[in-house]
């Protein structure tokens, strides 16, 4: 089914969103990915990934309130949806299933 496929980077973003309860938006997600994977992150890619995930229904977004931070500009915060969590779970299970089939390699 086209449109619900989860790309590698998207999966990473979705996972990070699930970790960051109530504070997931592009900057925190980007910083977290950078911290966890050591990759260099372009903010716009994260933002685009969040936008796509929302379109696919794995995330939902709401505008945060005005705070003293960042010149009073509001943030768009993201929350994982049930179907998003389900998809993440499926991905994980598929992997562990395949790992369990892995022959015993010796290198």
């Amino acid at each position: 089914m086209k449109g619900t496929h989860l790309g590698e980077f998207e999966e990473l973003v979705l996972l990070t969103c699930a970790l960051l309860v109530n504070s997931a938006y592009s900057v925190t997600v980007g910083a977290k990915i950078k911290e966890q994977t050591g990759r260099s992150i372009t903010l716009s890619t994260v933002h685009t990934a969040l936008f796509r995930l929302e379109k696919k229904g794995f995330l939902e977004s709401y505008m945060g309130g005005t705070t003293g931070e960042r010149g009073g500009r509001r943030k768009r915060l993201y929350r994982i949806t049930a179907s998003g969590f389900e998809t993440l779970n499926q991905a994980k299970e598929m992997r562990s299933r395949m790992w369990s089939l892995m022959p015993d390699y010796k290198f």
């Binding site: 592009s26 903010l43 933002h47 010149g71 500009r73």
Partner: peptide, 11 residues
Amino acid sequence: FEEVQGDLHEW
């Protein structure tokens, strides 16, 4: 615009 600019400034 608002969220993007905010994010960019923070970044």
